[in-house]
């Protein structure tokens, strides 16, 4: 017993160091995949407040560019309003539409904190679970997809962006409809890559890349970027497709969170598929 106490006394500095270090690394590696609590993230009340105050000051720096972007989006949407069409036929009966049901709803949000040079970049949004934000919802802006909600507190939420290691959004290359997973290598915030594209197919440069909408997080056909380069993968019959994101993640401010009204139904149905058993 005395030896044990002597051991602890001798190595107490090292033991305390290891304990604290272990705590830090443990939170880092678990929170990257799934955050257990709101503490230690920027959705906690104190850090949320600090970031809000900071954003109140800095948001004006990009005001004119953002207004311009919103105006352009408004023009695009206004073109589709009934008022901008001339009515060609009158006297149609109004029917209650049963062919189309609303599947996606959009919640507007502001990015109050963002990074783009780290290996894993997270954005903080100014809305949280009180506004209906939940873990796993998709986020996009007027130009392209942004990411997936990582954790939400009452008034703030953190988005795991496209600029992280394990984002794995399923995207497709139009018009052939080839699909693969979106990855980011941590170097250039303007470029990403798609893996899992077989090299026997011809892909045109600058063909559009959009979301596939397979997991129900993003609707089908949201903009992601354009194919910039095709690199062969050594030893595998695959292309490493380099794409250029259509959104500039360094200046992003206004985003929309996607609420899929049928998400639960899809998850419930997909959970019925029996998992492969290894024999």
């Amino acid at each position: 017993m005395r030896n044990l106490i002597a051991f602890f006394r001798r190595f107490r500095v090292f033991l305390i160091f290891v304990l604290l270090q272990f705590f830090a690394l443990y939170t880092y590696f678990t929170y990257l995949n799934f955050p257990r609590s709101q503490y230690l993230t920027s959705v906690s009340r104190v850090s949320g407040l600090i970031l809000t105050v900071q954003n109140d000051i800095t948001k004006h720096f990009n005001l004119s560019t953002n207004n311009y972007k919103l105006q352009k989006e408004n023009i695009r949407l206004r073109k589709r309003l009934p008022e901008s069409f001339q009515r060609m036929q009158n006297g149609w009966a109004k029917i209650n539409d049963t062919l189309f049901h609303q599947q996606y709803e959009y919640i507007p949000a502001t990015v109050i904190n963002s990074t783009s040079t780290k290996r894993n970049n997270f954005f903080t949004l100014n809305i949280g679970s009180k506004q209906g934000i939940k873990h796993g919802m998709g986020v996009f802006s007027d130009k392209g997809i942004v990411g997936i909600v990582h954790i939400a507190s009452d008034h703030f939420s953190v988005v795991k962006t496209v600029l992280t290691e394990n984002i794995n959004v399923d995207v497709m290359i139009e018009p052939i409809g080839l699909f693969g997973l979106l990855k980011w290598d941590g170097r250039d915030p303007r470029r990403g890559s798609i893996t899992g594209i077989s090299n026997d197919l011809k892909i045109k440069k600058w063909s559009k890349v959009t979301t596939r909408g397979g997991s129900g997080i993003f609707p089908r056909g949201l903009n992601v970027g354009k194919v910039e380069k095709l690199n062969p993968v050594e030893g595998k019959p695959l292309w490493d497709v380099v794409i250029r994101f259509s959104e500039d993640y360094r200046t992003i401010q206004r985003v929309y969170v996607i609420k899929n009204l049928f998400q639960e139904e899809q998850n419930k149905l997909e959970s019925l598929i029996p998992e492969d058993k290894e024999e």
Binding site: L25, S42, S44, N113, K118, F122, V158
Partner: peptide
């Protein structure tokens, strides 16, 4: 610092070292 900048313990670890 980690709490505000969404690094979840990265700064803590390097500062401890």
């Amino acid at each position: 610092i980690d709490g505000i900048s969404n690094t979840f313990g990265l700064h803590t670890s390097s500062l401890l070292v």
